Lab assay of single mutants.
Amino acid sequence: MATDAALRRLLRLHRTEIAVAVDSAFPLLHALADHDVVPEDKFQETLHLKEKEGCPQAFHALLSWLLTQDSTAILDFWRVLFKDYNLERYGRLQPILDSFPKDVDLSQPRKGRKPPAVPKALVPPPRLPTKRKASEEARAAAPAALTPRGTASPGSQLKAKPPKKPESSAEQQRLPLGNGIQTMSASVQRAVAMSSGDVPGARGAVEGILIQQVFESGGSKKCIQVGGEFYTPSKFEDSGSGKNKARSSSGPKPLVRAKGAQGAAPGGGEARLGQQGSVPAPLALPSDPQLHQKNEDECAVCRDGGELICCDGCPRAFHLACLSPPLREIPSGTWRCSSCLQATVQEVQPRAEEPRPQEPPVETPLPPGLRSAGEEVRGPPGEPLAGMDTTLVYKHLPAPPSAAPLPGLDSSALHPLLCVGPEGQQNLAPGARCGVCGDGTDVLRCTHCAAAFHWRCHFPAGTSRPGTGLRCRSCSGDVTPAPVEGVLAPSPARLAPGPAKDDTASHEPALH
């Protein structure tokens, strides 16, 4: 009773807030009518008042009428009001819900409408889902798969039609296919003929059939049928067999079959498995989609049935006599038709004709302190090069084509190399640097090759510096006499390219 009084008091307290929050009759008014909170006449009256005075006034009048009803109607109103779709449509209802007392429970059932309790003993237990329907569909599909699609060729003596089998029958139906081979029951999904010589313990000319048996419980189990008994694959494991010639990621696949039913060829011909030897223990289905393919039931050349050999690369099948050149017997292992072999060759040939990528240039590290003349020119003028003790990398590039010797140069053309002071002394051009340390401070000019250098860098042994005729380390061993002091540049003949010694390969005349 306390809860009923509290709900009535809360409705009177929030009546105006609810009326202002509800700006549309749908969905709240319609939901109240659906849950029998508002009768039909009051529903029509509220809609009429909404058209006349507006939605807030109409709902305020409806809530005032609701306060005169019993506690069950008020409880049902609060339940409908706080439904998710009403809270989404009328956003101003959320503060009312947040301020609702926590001790007021809106989930209690309506009085007088409590459903009768059902004894637990009368409640049926839930049924577990079964796979009976899938099993029945598999039974119905198996006879259809064994139905012949056409008439065999005159040369083929193997013609068999499976008798119709009602689904209610649980007995196995067997077809006489000759040579002791028996087909599987209607619940078998796949059958492959297997030679009895590969099964340990088999006697006589009995041949087993590799099947997948579907049981009534819905589970499946792969086994071997020899005669009327089934054997699990673990009985046929043979770890010492060295003649297993397995197909790549293979499961067994029928390579020879008669049109209309699988079996042995007439005249004692023995149908073979995809792999010879003992049956392997793992009978998992292969991951290669080509091995799941269903080959055609007629020859791809003459479009006739009979004894066919199936290609492992495509769905086509052929007569042995229709092949070019014809085959006398079934080859062992994987067999592919000429079209598949030709496609494989065409895929391999473009790969062989692809040009080989060019090898990157060989990189040879230079000892610290040495650099090529090109690196000396590329440096920024007026700045010493940083990191001189790091190992430089010199790339061996292809030799350029031989060019004509340089033409003779006048001494005026070499004027930018040297600057003559007032006393006739050779001065260095701006930006000249030593080729060893890279520093341009207090550098000297070689009178023979006009290269800038430090005496301490080229002659670290402490050799005394002569007063005139300074030469760098590369030119100090040259027998050519030094030019007379005061000459602007060496003779043009000295600039012609010539053979250089091994220790002077990195010091070429550089223009500054």
Score class of each variant (00 low, 15 high):
residue 30 H to A: 00
residue 202 A to L: 09
residue 105 D to Y: 15
residue 224 I to D: 08
residue 15 R to S: 01
residue 130 T to N: 09
residue 198 D to C: 06
residue 100 F to N: 12
residue 27 P to C: 01
residue 41 D to I: 00
residue 85 Y to F: 06
residue 244 N to T: 12
residue 203 R to V: 15
residue 210 L to E: 01
residue 40 E to Y: 00
residue 273 L to C: 06
residue 85 Y to C: 03
residue 142 A to H: 04
residue 44 Q to D: 09
residue 66 L to E: 01
residue 246 A to P: 11
residue 32 L to V: 00
residue 33 A to Y: 03
residue 265 A to T: 10
residue 256 V to E: 07
residue 19 A to W: 00
residue 28 L to H: 00
residue 196 S to Q: 11
residue 81 L to T: 03
residue 29 L to I: 02
residue 255 L to R: 04
residue 143 P to L: 11
residue 30 H to N: 04
residue 201 G to L: 14
residue 131 K to A: 03
residue 38 V to F: 01
residue 41 D to W: 05
residue 198 D to Q: 05
residue 272 R to D: 13
residue 103 D to G: 14
residue 68 T to P: 02
residue 144 A to G: 14
residue 16 T to P: 01
residue 233 P to I: 02
residue 58 A to L: 02
residue 69 Q to N: 00
residue 269 G to Q: 08
residue 232 T to I: 09
residue 77 F to E: 04
residue 78 W to M: 03
residue 255 L to S: 07
residue 131 K to V: 02
residue 89 R to W: 09
residue 160 A to D: 09
residue 98 D to R: 05
residue 26 F to Q: 00
residue 104 V to D: 00
residue 103 D to M: 00
residue 29 L to D: 00
residue 233 P to D: 06
residue 122 L to N: 03
residue 253 K to W: 13
residue 205 A to E: 06
residue 70 D to E: 09
residue 162 P to L: 10
residue 229 E to G: 12
residue 66 L to Y: 06
residue 227 G to H: 03
residue 271 A to S: 11
residue 152 A to Q: 08
residue 156 S to F: 15
residue 87 L to W: 00
residue 228 G to N: 15
residue 224 I to H: 04
residue 263 G to A: 08
residue 138 A to Q: 03
residue 231 Y to G: 04
residue 195 S to A: 14
residue 203 R to S: 07
residue 200 P to N: 12
residue 111 K to W: 05
residue 14 H to A: 01
residue 213 Q to A: 04
residue 94 Q to N: 01
residue 234 S to I: 09
residue 77 F to Y: 02
residue 143 P to A: 12
residue 215 F to C: 04
residue 98 D to F: 03
residue 8 R to F: 01
residue 153 S to P: 15
residue 86 N to H: 00
residue 179 N to Q: 00
residue 253 K to F: 07
residue 100 F to Q: 13
residue 242 G to W: 09
residue 178 G to W: 06
residue 23 D to V: 00
residue 48 H to V: 15
residue 13 L to I: 06
residue 191 A to H: 13
residue 54 G to I: 04
residue 8 R to P: 01
residue 186 A to W: 02
residue 74 I to P: 04
residue 273 L to G: 09
residue 204 G to K: 09
residue 56 P to Q: 07
residue 49 L to N: 00
residue 35 H to K: 01
residue 29 L to G: 01
residue 203 R to G: 05
residue 198 D to P: 05
residue 68 T to S: 07
residue 53 E to W: 13
residue 170 A to H: 15
residue 135 S to G: 00
residue 34 D to V: 02
residue 226 V to Q: 05
residue 50 K to V: 06
residue 219 G to N: 05
residue 59 F to A: 02
residue 218 G to Y: 06
residue 25 A to W: 00
residue 187 S to C: 09
residue 104 V to H: 00
residue 68 T to C: 07
residue 42 K to M: 05
residue 99 S to E: 02
residue 34 D to L: 04
